[in-house]
């Protein structure tokens, strides 16, 4: 392990202090006031009811959570889930070959390829989404080109559809998938892959029996990193989906700013957060189990 392994230092002998240093107070106070208190407010309001002119009436009921079971809203939830799952799957499909290629490229090329993956990730999200509006709209570049080439007679209406949202989400979150996958493949011992090949495994079996199980932690990490923001996406469905293809994020915004039903909006956001945290928890469980495994299964391997 690294020299910073606490077990190798003198400070190990100092007793565990009961209290953190005072230095921890300011950041905790800031987050407490401007993150946790607002979060609790949302929770509290989700049990209240909407006042006559917007605003909040402080009653206690589960009415908002019941309303959510209305097929109208359930559909939006299901669409969000379906889009998030599809986005994650497409990102994995597109990202795995890229990550594998980068991790197996010569070292000096790896840096360049990684940079190329990271640049879009650092580019303003609105700009990247706008680019697809520009391409996909009825008079947009894609239709102009396709019609110019005589491939289609009438423009294809893609913008403001689920397809457009899916394209935008995959485009926006692909780098989130590639980076953890790259790290996982990079850690994968090349000779282990060769060993499978040498032991009569055809390409598909090499992938399924060796590469996939050994890169699974990276796959899970990448999927979580793509799934969470996709599920709560706001900009992409707002710009590429329009009113017809709302996702949960848009519904929340709609309830808060248009319908001015804060209690209902709060209930929706709480369920969304619950879903996300649930996913996170599952991931942490898997991760912890894996790390427990790792101390056994990799410790020896690393030392060779």
């Amino acid at each position: 392990m690294s020299p910073s392994d606490p077990s190798t230092t003198l400070s190990d002998h100092s007793p565990i202090s009961r209290r953190p240093t005072w230095l921890l107070l300011p950041p905790l106070a800031w987050l407490g006031a401007f993150f946790f208190v607002p979060l609790l407010l949302v929770l509290a309001i989700s049990f209240a009811t909407r006042g006559t002119y917007g605003g909040v009436e402080w009653t206690f009921s589960f009415a908002n959570y019941v309303t959510m079971l209305d097929p109208l809203y359930l559909k939006i939830y299901l669409r969000s889930l379906a889009l998030a799952v599809a986005t994650t799957a497409l990102c994995l499909l597109l990202g795995f070959p890229l990550a594998y290629y980068i991790a197996r490229a010569p070292a000096r090329w790896q840096g360049i390829w990684l940079l190329l993956v990271i640049i879009p990730f650092w580019t303003n999200f609105l700009v990247r989404t706008y680019a697809w509006m520009f391409i996909l709209r009825t008079e947009g570049l894609m239709n102009t080109l396709l019609m110019g080439m005589g491939l289609i007679e009438h423009p294809i209406e893609i913008l403001y559809s689920d397809t457009a949202v899916l394209i935008g989400l995959v485009y926006g979150y692909l780098p989130f998938m590639v980076l953890p996958l790259y790290a996982a493949v990079e850690r994968l011992d090349r000779s282990v892959v060769e060993a499978a090949w040498d032991l009569y495994a055809p390409a598909w079996a090499v992938f399924r029996r060796v590469i996939w199980p050994l890169t699974k932690p990276g796959v899970i990490a990448g999927c979580i990193l793509v799934f969470i923001p996709s599920l709560g996406a706001f900009i992409t469905p707002d710009l590429l989906g329009g009113a017809r293809t709302m996702m949960v994020g848009n519904l929340i915004q709609h309830e808060y700013l248009v319908a001015r039903d804060w209690p209902f909006g709060s209930a929706i956001s709480f369920v969304l957060m619950g879903l996300v945290l649930l996913g996170m928890l599952v991931y942490l469980k898997v991760e912890r189990a894996r790390q427990g495994d790792e101390t056994v299964s990799w410790a020896g391997g690393d030392r060779q």
């Binding site: 000779s191 060769e194 060993a195 040498d198 032991l199 055809p202 050994l214 299964s297 990799w298 391997g301």
Partner: peptide, 27 residues
């Protein structure tokens, strides 16, 4: 390689870390 009647013992052994001794040998 997967169709050659020759097998390699790697310098670093390249044992499959996720498989037991038995499964490694049976691979």
């Amino acid at each position: 390689p997967n169709l050659r009647p020759a097998n390699l013992v790697f310098q670093t052994y390249a044992l499959f870390p996720h498989l037991t001794v038995f499964d490694n040998i049976a691979f």
